[in-house]
Amino acid sequence: MQPIRMERIYNAKVKKVWQAITDNNQMKQWYFDIAEFKPEVGFEFQFTGEGKDGEKYIHLCKVVEVIKEKKLTYSWRYDGFEGNSFVTFELSAEGEETKLKLTHTGLETFPTNNPDFAKESFTEGWNYITGTSLKQFVES
């Protein structure tokens, strides 16, 4: 399975987008209700997400790479399910704007018999998160 790759341009400076993806209080406003987050390699965090039919999934994540204001990567897996994937946010300045490149790899390691773990489901989620939720947050 090919990884998910998306690019977005935000009318906001890199510093503002970086804060949005790494500051716990800001993340709660556009991403998920994460109790604690630090952009430090080895930092583990979790949050609960919802499936299409309202199922609750506990996401278990661990920061694996941080290059301040440039790159953030963390593992993304589900409590009680096989599989492990990696989410990477890469930022670059485009004049006064910021280009975000999001990559989500390893989706093929999740159970194939659960539609919530289908690539289309992740694509839909990331489209909303990067194209609507984060965009509105950093451009407001």
Rank of each mutant, 00 (worst) to 15 (best):
K71P: 11
T103E: 04
N114E: 06
N114G: 01
R8H: 08
K135E: 14
E40S: 01
Q19R: 13
E90P: 05
I67Q: 12
K38M: 07
F86R: 05
F89C: 05
V138H: 10
A12W: 13
T103V: 04
K135N: 05
N127H: 03
A12C: 08
R8L: 10
G95S: 15
S121T: 15
F45Q: 03
F86G: 00
Y10H: 14
E36T: 07
Q29L: 02
D33G: 07
T123F: 15
A35H: 06
F110T: 01
F47H: 02
P115N: 07
L102P: 12
W30A: 11
Y78L: 07
G49F: 09
F137W: 00
A118I: 09
G54C: 09
G131Y: 11
F117S: 13
F43Q: 04
F37V: 02
K15N: 07
I58Y: 15
F32Y: 15
Q26P: 01
K56L: 09
K71F: 06
K70R: 14
C61R: 12
K101P: 03
E82V: 15
C61I: 10
Y57C: 09
K71Y: 03
H59V: 09
T109Y: 15
L72V: 08
E65W: 02
W76P: 03
E55A: 02
F32I: 07
V64M: 14
A93E: 03
C61L: 14
V63D: 00
E97N: 15
K99V: 08
K99H: 10
L107Y: 05
